[in-house]
Structures are given as C-alpha cells and as structure tokens.
Design a binder for these strands. Structure first.
Length: 554
RNA sequence: GCGCCUGUAGCUCAGUAGGAUAGAGCAACUGCCUUCUAAGCAGUGGGUCAGGAGUUCGAAUCUCUUCAGGCGCGCCA
C-alpha cells in the first residue's frame, strides 16, 4: 500500500462494518471523512446518522452502540469517541504518521503515485494554438493547465499521451496565406489592398521580410498559387518551429504533434463524412452538407460548405474518431477555451453518431484570461496583433512564476492576470514561498553533510522521537499527497497541487521556526533530518508535476 | 431571447459525490533575527457564502427563482 491514509481508512471501514453487524444493524455505505478540526479526530464516520432512520433510534444512540462494538486491536486506532450529531471520531496513535517516512524513502521521486488510473489510456490535448501567429495568454494558461493535468494523471496511474493538434490546413490557413501574400507584395513595392478579416499582426510582416531576405522579389510575378504556397509553407514551418521552441521553454514537451492536414491526406475526413451520411446523420440544405446533432436542429452544424470545402468541424470529428477508433484511447481530454463551449455538445453527439460513448470525451472548459494593465482591461485579439505573447510573458515573469501562477486557480474560474504585478516580480508570488522551503531544506542537509551527518535509512533511526506538534503536522501533510493526487486526477484539477505545495511549505516553515534540526541530541537530529528529507522529496515531486523548479539555493 | 460559466472576508481565491464552530494568501495591526537562509514564524481584527423560497437530522454545497458579471448562439476556428 502506497498510501498511508488509505491504509488507515481501510482499517476504519473494516472495524465499523464489523461493529454494524455485531450491533445488528443493516449495512450502509457510510463515509470515512477527515474532520476539519484535528480535535475531532483523525477520521470520522457518519454511519450512525445514516442508520438512525432504519434503526428507529436517535443518531447519538446508534453511534454509542456502534462505538461499544468497535474493536481496535491490530489497528492504528488509539481511541474512539462519539461527538456532535452522531459522528464516530477515530483518534489514531502516532505510528500511522511515522509509517509514511519509510514509504517516502522507498518510493523517492515516485512518492505520491497511486494506481486509481489502472493503466487506462488517456490522450490529453491542449494548447493546439493556430500556427498563424505567436501564442498568447490564453495559450499560456492552457499550456500550464494541460501539461500539469497530464502529469497529475500520470502520477495517478493513467497511461497518458500529451498531444498538440496542429491546425495546418483549412480556412484560417487560407486567410494566413492571403495575409502573407499581401504583406509580401507590399514589401516588394506592389500596392495591394489588405482585407480587414486577415491577420493584421506585425509577425506577418516579419515573415514576409524574412521570406524576401531569402527569395527576394522573384515571386512577385509568379503565379498566385505558387506564390501563396511558397509563402505559406515557409511561414508555417517557421511558426511551428517557434511554437515548439516556446513550449519547450515553457517546459512542455508533447508526445504527439498531430497535423490536421494528415487527416485529409489519409482520407479520414472524407471517410468520416461518408460514415455519417450512411448512418443518416446528415442532410443537405442551401447547397451545404449538415450534421444533424439533435432532433430540433438547434445544434446542427455544416460539414461541407456549399463551395465543396470541408469545415473545421468535419476535420475535428475525423480527428476525435481517430483518437478513439484508430488509436484506441480509452478517454480523450481536451482543454478548450470557454469561448468554444458551444462546440462541446456537437462534438459529443458526433461521437455518439459514430458509436463512441460520448462521455469518453471530456472537455475541460477553461475560462479566459483577462489581462489587466494599469487597472484597465487589455484586449488580446490575435488578429489585431495587440496581444501579450507567451514569449514576452516568460521573459518578464519567468517560467516558474508562470507555471505556478496559472495553476493556482481552478480551470473554471475567471482569471484576471495583473500584468503590472507579474512584471514587478513581487514577493506576493507564492512560488517563492514554496521554492524557499525547498532551498532551506537543501541548505540544512548541505550544512549537516559538512559535519559528517547524513540522511540515514529509517531502519537506523528512531522516528518515534518526532513528537512535536510541528513535526507531526509535517508527517500528516506528507501522508496526504497520494490522496491529493487522486483527487486532482478525478476532478481534472491540477490546481490542487499548487495549493498542496503551499500548505506543505507552510508546515515546513512553521517547523523550521519551532524546531532545530542541528541539535546536540544526535538521535533526534537524525530523525529530524529524515523528516525534512522526506519534505524535500515530497515538495520536489509536487513542483515537478506543476512544472516548477525546486532550487537547492536561493 | 436561448445556452454555458461565475458570484464566499477590503482584494485574489479555496471549500460544492450534503456533515461538526465556513478557510488560505494578500492588505491592516502587534510581536519575533548573537544559533541550520527573516523570500521566514507567531498572533489580532475582518463574513447577509449575491437575494429569496424549497428538499432533511443537517445546505456555501442539491432543486426552483430573482439579480449581477463573463462567454457563446457563423457555410470562423
């Protein structure tokens, strides 16, 4: 068992079930909870309240009776009390906390892992920014969220693939091509109009200039198709290369870069449209082919335009079918901006139409980032080009702060990013607080090593010397990690990890102020050294999941 | 108009498979550095969980409703 809390819970479940049957009650699916106040025990059970009705007794009476039948022999349970409306509270002896240290010693960088995923395969698709320009704040949040979520799922025992879907064909690429062509011709002295619908950003002009630096103006008089194709291929590869570089700076590495154009090349887009037609999920209207998403037609969507060109939606159906039916993933998780939520129901009904259970597709809707500057909302439209890019953000606040900051809030909460504060590199940023705890620990370990005192194995230490409140709090917090990982994985909320890291750092700083590691009593010194080494490992594992450095010095 | 998300301390947010006295950080105030990093610790004050009704032993959490803000409702993605 790699989870000390689960071990304790299992003991309690077993002991309470025995008591229920010994007392002659019917079995109930009771909960083992963690009371908010430690004074109410390490765990509590609500069985008495649930049994009260069928037993025709007040909850407290049921609880008293159950408590009499609880046998604590051979368990961590020290004593049992009935309290409040009928809670049965379990107080454990300290040995359950001590047992976490050998666990950490044994598992090291794997401590915290659980097996709730039981090897289920999940593809996590995130960022998937259009390669038509630089990445922005929304991609920054999506990147931090998606990568950390995938890391959490891996820790929870899922077989995870990180994937970037590259929209390298279709309508927006055509717009991209037109924008490039116009900028190219303008740079070459040819006056051409620039459509308001095109990409207005400076980066398009830069690409045109770079293209000219290599090819000069020789494409000015070339056939338009040839000109656009040359420009697009050049700029696309350049942009994709820059995206990969930026994401790598952001400590994100994908297992798969999946190209939309491959779905057309392989014929999967045509194939999926044919399948939908055969199954009767399509109809023609106004010259276009529509997908019938619902009876009322409210959510119907065009698959093939009247001009014969397939929509992004059609390619996206083929893409998701590919995930499930061609590559066989059990689940697919997509991180989407909240502005795409209208797309979710359609995609799920498309999957259903193809015979894929729609709940295998889970879309995490991430509320958009609102950029605040000087107390005002700064707009970040890509077309207008007036956006803070991910590159600039990383230059200004650093990777650690960005990764940590974007994982401090739940995906569903709106995010006001105060640019002034971030640029300040203010100490308000809790990432320093957590990293400082890690650096402090490393410093102590370094100093003791200088005196010839090293971290020993648990077998050679008397862990039970750890009796101070701060020491026990630390052990308790370390023991919570596997539960936290499991909860974060179930809720798809990696933000639990940053909150846990702050709590653990907080417990360490409290310990640091209350207890000295380098004390005369060599036995106690060794026990405390072991304790902080376990904190170091735990902090490092959590920061690794979030994608933040665990520095040895600050 | 319809749909999704959000509303909790002055600010930013946790807590929502119903549980005990609703938490944290920041800001404010009071203490703590001759000993392992003060980027730290200890403490104080601060609440109509947006409003209302309902469900039950028990509701911030579930249901209904009102209000406020964000986003969406394209042969864009």
């Amino acid at each position: 068992m790699q989870n000390i809390r689960q071990t304790a819970r299992n003991q309690i479940i077993s002991v309470v079930n025995n008591a229920i049957s010994s007392a002659g009650f019917e079995s109930v699916p009771f909960a083992v909870e963690t009371p908010r106040e430690l004074s109410n025990g390490d765990f509590s059970v609500n069985a008495a309240m649930l049994l009260a009705k069928s037993a025709k007794l007040p909850p407290r009476a049921v609880a008293d009776k159950l408590a009499q039948f609880i046998c604590t022999k051979g368990t961590y349970i020290d004593r049992v009390e009935v309290a409040g409306p009928g809670f049965i509270n379990f107080y454990l002896n300290n040995s359950w906390l001590y047992d976490v240290l050998p666990l950490v010693e044994d598992l090291k960088e794997n401590y915290g892992q659980t097996d709730i995923g039981s090897g289920e395969s999940i593809v996590v698709e995130f960022v998937s920014a259009n390669p038509t320009g630089p990445m922005h704040m929304g991609n920054a949040r999506g990147g931090a969220l998606g990568d950390s979520m995938a890391n959490v799922l891996r820790f929870a025992g899922f077989d995870v693939t990180k994937e970037f879907y590259l929209n390298d064909s279709g309508n927006q690429i055509e717009k991209f091509a037109c924008s490039l062509e116009a900028r190219y011709l303008q740079q070459c002295g040819v006056e051409v109009p620039f459509d308001e619908e095109w990409y207005l950003g400076e980066d398009i002009i830069d690409r045109a200039k770079e293209f000219i630096a290599i090819h000069g103006d020789k494409y000015v008089n070339a056939p338009q198709d040839e000109r656009k194709a040359a420009l697009t291929e050049f700029a696309l590869e350049k942009n994709i290369g820059e995206m990969k570089k930026t994401l790598s700076d952001y400590r994100i590495s994908y297992d798969v870069w999946y190209r939309e154009s491959d779905l057309y090349k392989s014929g999967e887009v045509d194939e999926v449209i044919r399948l939908l037609q055969e199954k009767g999920y399509t109809y023609k209207k106004d010259g276009a082919l529509w997908f019938k998403a619902s009876e009322d037609g409210e959510k119907d969507e065009v698959l093939i335009r009247a001009n014969g060109v397939a929509t992004y939606f059609a390619a996206d159906i083929a893409y998701h079918r590919n995930k499930f039916q061609k590559r066989g993933f059990d689940r697919a998780i997509n991180i989407w901006g909240a502005d795409h939520h209208g797309h979710v129901a359609r995609m799920k009904s498309a999957m259903e139409a193809l015979g894929v259970k729609p709940d295998r597709l889970e879309v995490v809707l991430m509320q958009l980032v609102r950029l605040m500057q000087g107390g005002e909302v700064a707009r970040m439209s890509k077309r207008s080009g007036k956006a803070i890019t991910l590159n600039v953000l990383l230059d200004e606040i650093g990777v650690d702060a960005a990764r940590f900051f974007f994982n401090m809030r739940n995906a569903g909460s709106h995010f006001d990013f105060d640019l002034d504060l971030a640029v300040e590199q203010s100490n308000n940023n809790p990432v320093y607080y957590v990293q400082y705890a890690h650096a402090r620990i490393c410093s102590i370990i370094r100093l003791l090593a200088g005196d010839g005192i090293f971290v020993k194995n648990c077998g050679d230490i008397d862990i039970s010397l750890l009796k101070e409140k701060e020491e026990l709090n630390l052990l308790r917090k370390i023991g919570e990690l596997p539960d936290e990982i499991a909860l974060a994985a179930q809720a798809l909320e990696p933000s639990r990890m940053t909150r846990y890291a702050i709590e653990l750092a907080n417990d360490f700083h409290s310990f640091y102020s209350a207890c000295r590691v380098n004390v005369e009593d060599r036995q106690l010194c060794q026990a405390r050294l072991k304790l902080i080494d376990a904190v170091r490992i735990t902090l490092s594992n959590v920061l690794g999941i979030v994608g933040v450095d665990a520095p040895e010095k600050m």
